[in-house]
């Protein structure tokens, strides 16, 4: 974990309301693991006050990238940053995806900007280990679909669902995933990893449990310190509260008490 002043290398709109920002931060880039995040101060001011957490989306040499959607004051300010500006970063933070050597297949389920940590995971895993990866990508429409080509470029199988049916399966990504599961295509030695909106994660977790498959989810929560000290970002686990910033953001879905999730 480091605190660094990082230079913005680029800040590009990828679809309406979503941006990819490249940041020069060799120390963080070197040690980042898939599923970890950076806690970023959008401006050196008292308003907005707190840092904002973002999953690491790509790492290349001395650079990291984040993929973010403009949802509030912080991300709006972020979207206006230009090349050459400096941003204060804390990272890499949290526990990422722990994948043991018995896993032969990764089944990834991504909703919206939830692709970010899963893309990083795939880029590390698929290439290095030459193992199979199947990606379920969901979005509202064809126009809002993220990373389809990038995933294909890594040699993964991509299955797409859009809510309006403009591309791939018409419906939610969790419905497509359920259909795929029920067709008996989930082989043993598979690990399911999901990131996206909470209702989606809840469904994926429950479907995985029914199929007796291990499922990791990457969760989001409003954070204070981002390093485990303030205990502000907790969720209810099976054995008490868990900090999303330090015990997560990646959790085994079985360790979470889903009845307590909002």
């Amino acid at each position: 974990m480091r605190q660094v002043k990082s230079e913005v290398l680029f800040n590009r709109k990828v679809i309406s309301g979503c941006f990819v920002m490249g940041l020069y931060c060799p120390e963080i880039a070197r040690s980042a693991e898939p599923g970890q995040f950076v806690h970023l101060r959008v401006e050196d001011r008292e308003e907005p006050l707190l840092r904002r957490p973002f999953s690491i989306y790509r790492v290349e040499n001395e650079k990291i990238e984040i993929l973010y959607k403009v949802v509030g004051r912080g991300t709006k300010i972020l979207s206006r940053k230009r090349r050459g500006e400096k941003i204060d970063l804390l990272g890499p933070l949290g526990k990422g995806f722990k994948i043991d050597s018995t896993v032969k297949r990764l089944i990834l389920v991504a909703g919206g900007v939830g692709v970010a940590p899963l893309y990083f995971l795939t880029s590390r895993w698929a290439i290095a280990k030459m193992r199979e990866v199947i990606v379920f990508l969901g979005a509202e429409s064809k126009e809002r679909l993220l990373c389809e080509e990038e995933f294909k470029g890594l040699g993964t199988k991509v299955k797409v669902a859009t809510e309006n049916g403009s591309r791939g399966f018409k419906g939610l990504i969790s419905d497509l995933f359920a259909k795929w599961l029920s067709s008996g295509q989930l082989l043993s030695e598979s690990l399911i990893c999901a990131c996206g909106p909470l209702p989606m994660l809840r469904k994926i977790a429950s479907l995985s449990k029914r199929s007796k498959a291990v499922c990791y989810v990457s969760l989001e929560q409003r954070m204070g310190c981002g390093i485990g000290a303030c205990r502000g970002c907790i969720i209810r686990g099976k054995n008490g509260y868990l900090r999303v910033c330090k015990d997560g953001p990646v959790f085994n879905a079985q360790d979470i008490d889903w009845n307590w999730m909002p």
Binding site: E46, E47, P48, L49, L50, Q221, R222, M223, G224, C230, R231, G232, C233, I234, I235, R236, G240, Y241, W260, P262
Partner: peptide, 23 residues
Amino acid sequence: KEGNPPPRLVEVPCGLLNAIGLE
């Protein structure tokens, strides 16, 4: 002490509202 149920933090203008509950 287990502390309060989430959400425990809310950012407000120039401030932070918390209810950690002494966890």
